[in-house]
């Protein structure tokens, strides 16, 4: 059973279908990149995977013990307030909410998890810093740590490198690759950066209102849609 399986999924706003007939699946350990032009329905699909938007038709199935509220989500930068008085520790710890239920306070285990994830992403010494004083790259690591606190199985990243400079972007991709290979956490990344996507990902989902391509990254590179989209950057 796959972690997530989409069967004939169509999603839209007020009767206007944005994406239709999506069929794809994500298995444990996969690194899936969702690519496509602006308005191709990438963000809409993300919302539906998170359960924030209901589908018009079709089904999104969760398997392998994954629950919909246990996806580690890293939102687009624009969705997070930049001028917010909260410490790194407070933000990372809030990723543990989904395992709390109605219990009002965090347990020692929750706090340990938060410290562990901060350690893992090299932001432990920023613990007491205010998130508004961080650089773009540091802030993304904090939000990634929060996402890791929320999941054991699947990270969902929505254009995570937008606005980061090239060096920080490269570091961030490395980090994701390590998490994917080292911890076996499946990664789903919405990306504009097609070159890096094909390099790191195991699978590609190319959207243009419907699925233009779904398969391994290798096959994508050979396919017609992939060659067109990758453009002149490729020799063959």
């Amino acid at each position: 059973m796959a972690l997530i399986k989409c069967e004939n999924v169509s999603i839209g706003y007020e009767g206007q279908t944005v994406v239709r007939d999506l069929n794809f699946h994500i298995d444990s350990g996969d690194y899936l990149c969702i690519v496509g032009e602006n308005g191709s329905g990438k963000s809409t699909l993300v919302k539906s995977l998170l359960g924030l938007k209901s589908v018009e038709s079709g089904r999104i199935l969760f398997g392998d013990g994954l629950k919909q509220n246990e996806i580690g989500y890293l939102p687009q930068q624009t969705d997070v307030q930049k001028d917010f008085p909260a410490s790194v520790y407070e933000v990372v710890l809030s990723g543990r909410l989904n395992s709390r239920g109605l219990k009002p306070f965090y347990s020692r285990e929750d706090r340990n998890q938060a410290y562990e994830k901060m350690e893992m992403l090299g932001i432990r010494e920023l613990e007491k810093q205010c998130v508004r004083d961080l650089s773009g790259g540091q802030r993304q690591r904090v939000l990634l740590a929060r996402a890791l606190c929320a999941t054991k199985k699947l990270l969902l990243l929505d254009e995570p490198v937008t606005g980061l400079d090239p060096i920080v972007t490269t570091e961030f991709y490395e980090l994701i690759r390590e998490i994917n290979r080292g911890s076996g956490i499946a990664v789903v990344m919405v990306s504009h950066d097609i070159e890096s996507a094909v390099k790191d990902a195991t699978h590609i989902l190319h959207l243009q209102e419907k699925v233009l391509f779904f398969g391994t990254a290798e096959d994508y590179r050979k396919s017609r849609v992939g060659r067109n989209f990758l453009g002149g950057g490729q020799d063959d």
Partner: peptide, 23 residues
């Protein structure tokens, strides 16, 4: 307020993430 403090923090900081994790 005290009972729901953690959830109030979560929805104030990032409502989308909070909703995605089942709040």
């Amino acid at each position: 307020f005290i009972f729901f403090y953690q959830k109030i923090f979560a929805i104030t900081f990032d409502e989308t993430f909070a909703r995605a994790t089942g709040v």
